[in-house]
Design a protein around this nucleic acid. Structure first.
Lengths: 183, 183, 183, 183
DNA sequence: CATGAATGAGTTTTCATTCAT
DNA sequence: CATGAATGAAAACTCATTCAT
């Protein structure tokens, strides 16, 4: 699955570039220039394109990374209180949305185009577990399905991001959604 | 309020351009090129810029138009059943979202930058009436405020738009939100 | 030589346009837009092009007008003190230079292209008279020729214009030139 | 002072572009198109903008270069005959004016806007030395100040440039000015 | 004649991507 | 592998000029 083991310095550059990309795209959205990413990563533009042959590839890479991170977070919650784990997770994701501008954009908009279907499924599966457990614990209505939860998750994440919601507004908006999920 | 009555041909072109812009921006988002708008409108690029000196102006114009349309729709619902009017309206907006890509984007993201603050307030005010009536009719919890409704409205509109929700998914997602608003 | 007698309103428009052009080109140079000229003249852009089929024609027209005005001023000085008339005239022209941006530019740069050779010769001739008289009065050295005077006139006019000379600087610079012309 | 040493090919292109720009702007004035500069330099348009991010920057660069060249020439004259060095220098500058259309324009008109204030001061200072020495040598009247000299220098340079003076005319015009500066 | 809308070539500038060093 | 210079296709915007109203 993973191609070659990469030389140490190459690996370091790749990571630097990813970090820089996350920062830049978070600030200016996906239309930020690759040149700026290179500058912040402290490498030349050619190096960016060597690691990620296309801007799309770069975007896909940081989205994948975030998805992996989120999936890991979900896994950690597998043993938490079933009645609250799902809500906690959604809360956390939406909270972080503002820091992940490009990611949220891409998650919602270009998921397919950008080729992150698989990692996305990974997150969905993990989230499915939280949902089941919440339902078994009687914290969420039985007829609610995973796709609604995902849909509302991305919708509110986007809303929070683009709408510039205040912390208070975010909390109240999510309270409505959560209330709608409870029995 | 309106400056000059415009010559017949100018009016026709202005309308054509607006229609073309709505179509183009709906398809490719706000980053679509003005040139394409001109092509579809069947006019030269200069004509677009004569009517809308800036791309921003063009975007603002179509957003304003949609806002006006929505506000009018809300007004029509003023005499409808208080218990359902608000939900009906939200449903309708989210339903149409998919056709209004750029509009939804701008509504949520660039409202201020694009200079549509006033029409936006107009819509909010009209929506506020629906909300009050729904609350008085006991269809919506009293502590729910207008900004949450607006936030959830734009969030789900964006979600539906960018996420490519199916009709079924949209209905279920909104059902959750509506349930969360009820007493 | 002059074509048709022009209707009264047409004549009025022509004059307005010329006045506006002088003002606009004086402020922004010859690259100012014809549209602005029309706006200030209070006519539509088509009217400007009806009177002056080309921007060049418009520029030429205002240059001609100024040349005529200057020539007239010279003529008035024909009976003034020979020893000072020439210097007075040069002084006055340079003084006004700042108000005549485009004119000075064109005078010096595009004289030929813009097709004002004849009026220019008219001014030169008139100036020649002042020069002769000054020389006969012993106020200017005999070997000085008309083309030098013209050259220094336009040069200092341009200098004053583009260099933004203060009144004091202009006076001192011309003092040097005049001293150089005296016996 | 100088940022990075530039790669060999980059240096070559930069020089080519500067040369092309000098040629193009000399012929068509500062309003000539950057595209033409690129064409004559034999590079793509992007290369021009990589070296000079703005048209203004390009203009400023060639002006600075000329100013530096002139300042160097003045320095060389520091040990020449005080009685003639100043006149020689002015003569030379005006002589070259015709080749430097844009430069002369900018020198006089846009000096500040184009951001060459410092190099300009450098030239002025150097010229001031020549002036002092000429005055001490009794070749120039004591009350003549540096700003007049500069003013007359740029004025005649512009005159020669835009007026298309013949060599003979230029010499005679300058003779008048020089005579005006002598005791 | 006047109006002012339409035209469209031209200008500056940006940026993803390629490739010589 | 890394560098960063070069490329060139857009994109937004301007303006002299034409022509239908």
């Amino acid at each position: 699955m993973s191609s070659k083991p990469l030389r140490a310095d190459a690996r370091r550059n790749r990571d630097r570039i990813l970090a820089a990309a996350e920062e830049v795209f978070a600030r200016h959205g996906a239309s930020a220039s690759t040149e700026e990413v290179a500058a912040i990563a402290g490498v030349a533009i050619g190096t960016v394109f060597r690691h990620f042959p296309t801007k799309q590839d770069l975007l896909a890479a940081i989205v994948k990374e975030l998805l992996a991170r989120l999936t890991a977070e979900v896994a950690e919650l597998a043993s938490a209180d079933p009645a609250t784990a799902l809500f906690d997770f959604v809360e956390r994701v939406v909270e972080q949305a503002a820091e992940k501008r490009a990611v949220v954009e891409l998650l919602a908009a270009d998921g397919v185009r950008v080729g992150v279907a698989d990692p996305l499924r990974g997150l969905a599966d993990a989230l499915g577990v939280l949902l089941s457990r919440a339902q078994q614990a009687g914290a969420v209505r039985a007829e609610i399905r995973l796709d609604e939860v995902l849909a509302l998750l991305t919708a509110t994440a986007q809303g929070a991001l683009h709408g510039g919601w205040s912390e208070d507004l975010r909390r109240r908006a999510l309270a409505v959604v959560f209330a709608g999920m409870r029995p």
